[in-house]
Every structure is written in structure tokens, then in C-alpha cells.
Amino acid sequence: MTSANPHRPIRGGAAPAAHATLPARGGVGLKPEHFRHILDTRPDIGFFEVHAENYMVAGGPFHHYLERIRADTPLSIHGVGLSIGGEGPLDEAHLDRLAALLARYRPESFSEHLAWSSHGGAFLNDLLPAPYHAGTLARVCAHIDRVQERLGRRMLLENPATYVEFEASTMAETDFISEVVGRTGCGLLLDVNNAYVACVNHGRDARAYLRALPLTAVGEIHLAGHAHDVDAAGAPLLIDSHGAPVAEAVWDLYAYAITLAGPQPTLIERDNDLPAFPVLAAEARQAEIVMARQAALEAA
């Protein structure tokens, strides 16, 4: 499976020729509620990111605005429906829709999740967890090989926010992701909020978790807010709600991630309780300030 894979990891900063890359700046998740504001004010944003499935419609206002906004801003397309971690085969019709969308918008980046969301023909609209063992590893790698082959490009895989673990797991999540990246040549979309949420939820050290990831493969970072709940024993259970500003603890972990992985395209994700656009733009600027501060430290 892996020997025939044309997408070996690209190391040493050599960018793939076929696609430009996202700038190492702050980006904002593009929401229809902000279309008009963005076109009217043309804010200086490093890049925008959209959820692929929202644009898998024939026409209308979504495409109208995305075409215009994308025309002068780098774009990341982020899939939420491929079910790469699923037990069943990939949905080839969905892969066709993705290929058509990528051909239309030529995004600088395409990413998806280490999760599953479809089962038995039903789409469950959540990023669901899978056990980490050899069987899942083989399936995830086969699915990523197929995605990269069909789309003709390298994809980034996002680390998940999870709430349960499986007795069947035999590998640490970081080892699992490292194996996937090594075998398929895909990149890593490091979601720092997911890392923080998962580490709190599973009693792990978030910094050690980051250090154990294949950080040379990082192509983008996600930041988002989370909500607080408690588990049955009263221990904190963080929820990846995307409904609040990025938490202080996640900013701290982000700064640490930048020291390890260098400056990266960094997205502010917000899907719930959407504020006015300038609030998100300010968080994107905050990410750029963190990156600049780290660069200054390294130069000193």
C-alpha cells in the first residue's frame, strides 16, 4: 500500500510545486453571516477557510461570495464529511464532489479529520472517534492514499478532540498520527484547541502530546474556543464547541507549538455564537503577534 504511494513526505521546506501554500499568518473561518462585511471592507486577513460541504451546492449566493472573496485572499478548504476514520469504504461520490470543488477554487490547502461521521449510509454529522490499533491504522492510511490519489494533492489530517477512549486501542494517538503521516505522506493540521481539549479530557500532558506529534509535517494550525462540562466523576470534560474566544490556556499552548513547529498558517475557527467579523480578525491578529514575538525571541 505505502510503497506505491507517490506522496511521500516532503521535508526540508520544499513546497509541492503544484499548489501554492497558505501564508504563515492569521486566518479566519469564512461564514455567510460575514460575506457582505468582508466584501465591503476588504480586511487584511492572511487566509480564509471554508467547510467543503457547504459549497457542494450548484450555485446561488454561497458561490457568488466565495468566488469574490477568494479572488484576492488565499483559501483553505476543510472537509468535514469524508469519514476518513470510518470502517467502510470512502464515499467515492463525495470524493468526486470534493475534486470538483477543489478544481473550481484551487485552494492553497485541503484538510480533513481523523474521525468518522458516516455509518451504514447515514451521515451522523459529528466527528466521531475510532480506536487506535493496527486495523484502524491500515484503513485510515488506505483512505488517505485514495484521497490524495483522487485529488492529486497532499492533504492535511487534523488531530481530533475526543471525549472517550477505547479499550481496544493499542497505540497512543500521537503514535497513530505519526504512523499515518509517515506512511501516507499527508501533512498535519495541528488543532491546538483539540489537543488541549483531548489532553484535559484524557488526563494527559498537552505539551508532551505536542512534542510526540510529527511536527515537521504541520501545514496549518487551528485555534478555537471550548466549553466546560464535567464527567461522571466530576473531572473536567472540555467540549470543542467553537462557540467562544480562544481560551488563555490554548493561547499558551499555541505559543509553545510555535516554538516547536515554527510560524504556521493559523486559523481562528468559530461556528457557534458568531461575533462580528472584527472580533475574529482581532484573534487572527493575536496569532500573528504570538508568531512575531517568537520570531523576535529566536532572533535575539
Partner: peptide, 12 residues
């Protein structure tokens, strides 16, 4: 399903 602290996974 399991939780690191042995709590009931139903809530999770």
C-alpha cells in the same frame, strides 16, 4: 469505552 479516571463513560 473507557475514561482515564475510571469514570462512567456514559456521560462522555
Amino acid at each position: 469505552l473507557r475514561a482515564w479516571n475510571g469514570s462512567d463513560p456514559v456521560k462522555r
